[in-house]
Amino acid sequence: MVEELIIAGFGGQGVMVMGQILSYAGMHEGKNVSWIPSYGPEMRGGTANCSVVVSDEPIASPIVTEPTTAIVMNRPSLDRFEPMVQPGGLLIYNSSLIDRAPERTDIRVIAVPANELGEEVGSDKVANMVVLGAYIKARGTVSFETVGQCLAEVLPARRHDLIPLNLEALKRGAELVK
């Protein structure tokens, strides 16, 4: 199994954290992982992305140019990364904020109304976790149990009271995917 992801969105939507949680979970399951942030002059409201590789084999290149999965949280990210997904790959997009449907027909596409579903479980701040839940259900890259254990590692201590809400959001996202 080699999963090469690009996770992209506005700064502040939690795309870096999504990638970190996947990386920690993969590492704890004994897999090889790498995580590279885009590090341009990003700021809240600008666009940001990270490249994540989770693999059973040693990782040759951590640079992702043809992702097996793209997770896009806003419209500019959909426009940029949809064409790059490998044929047969997966595209998950945040349909709460993106006003067009993806055009590719040679890949699997999952629409996640992430902000609405986040609101449903308590806050649209966990929209990223809703999407992560949908992703993990769709690909099975890591287990939900491991991801749950990683939250305390990735989230700063002052946010640990939000772990139950994050778990709820992961579950809500997973329910969306058959």
Partner: peptide, 10 residues
């Protein structure tokens, strides 16, 4: 280089 500095690996 920038990638090696910014990248996270175990």
């Amino acid at each position: 280089d920038g990638v090696l500095g910014q990248m996270m690996e175990p």
